[in-house]
Design a binder for these strands. Structure first.
Lengths: 133, 133
DNA sequence: TAGTAAATTTGTAATCATTACAATTTTATA
DNA sequence: TATAAAATTGTAATGATTACAAATTTACTA
């Protein structure tokens, strides 16, 4: 994955900040909040502004290369995976992991008359690590 | 449904404010925000405080007679239905409707090692009414 | 290459939902 | 009726997000 190229292909000029933010999202896969991205990158990019992180993520979402995950209020999280998938969140350690899901298995007969553009499946429980402690 | 009895059965003293707030939730079935509940009831209960609405909904959730719906950030919504079900939200008119779902149909083989305590399924699209305008 | 316009980044202030907390009011009880 | 406990209320604080204008960087053209 060449990140500058990937950004350019998606109509995003690959500025230094944008490259670093997407690189973080893509490599960490940790569904970070804006605050976590900012706190992680700020020491390495001293001029970085939190507003830039907000602006950049909004741009990524608009251009379709990032999705948002809102499981609980007061924290929007971001994900470099944009294909349909679900999320599992451990309510002990807080980790969020992507899970493949076959949405066709949901019986949506009740919804004949609507169009569905987005599906969010969030599972909340305890992860294996926290169960065995 | 006798609301004072229902509250009492669930270990909640049926004060006037609590009765009115639950009555609103239960009859409207509109997945309101705190603000909407407050704005609707305040004219009829002039002394009502928004803090009371927050306190009361937190109590309802703790006692298990209300659930929260967080589809988008910056608005927690409340639902008097607490059995497992999903939600459909129209991104034009904003209406949120409950939808029955058979969660067993989700193929969760990937999650053998975790316990799942809560499942949230949110479908976002356009409702029939907004499609035909 | 310099000069200018456009795009991007930045910092500060404003907004809005929610929570904290102490004071007041109401309810229950002795 | 007096007192304690519970519930309600209003105000202030918090924290995420947005608005916005200034500063900086980049792209383009003469």
């Amino acid at each position: 994955m060449n990140i500058p190229n990937y950004l350019a292909e998606n109509d995003i000029k690959p500025s230094y900040q944008r490259i670093r933010i997407f690189e973080y999202l893509y490599h960490e896969m940790n569904h970070p909040t804006v605050d976590l991205i900012y706190k992680t990158l700020a020491p390495e990019i001293p001029t970085l502004s939190k507003t830039t992180v907000y602006n950049t993520l909004k741009l990524f979402v608009d251009k379709g290369i990032t999705s948002t995950v809102t499981i609980e209020n007061n924290e929007v999280r971001y994900d470099a995976i944009v294909t349909h998938h679900g999320h599992f969140k451990c309510n002990v350690c807080g980790i969020i992991v992507d899970i493949p899901l076959n949405f066709n298995q949901l019986n949506l007969n009740e919804l004949k008359d609507v169009t569905i553009e987005q599906t969010q499946v969030h599972l909340i429980g305890k992860c294996n690590k926290c169960l065995t402690i």
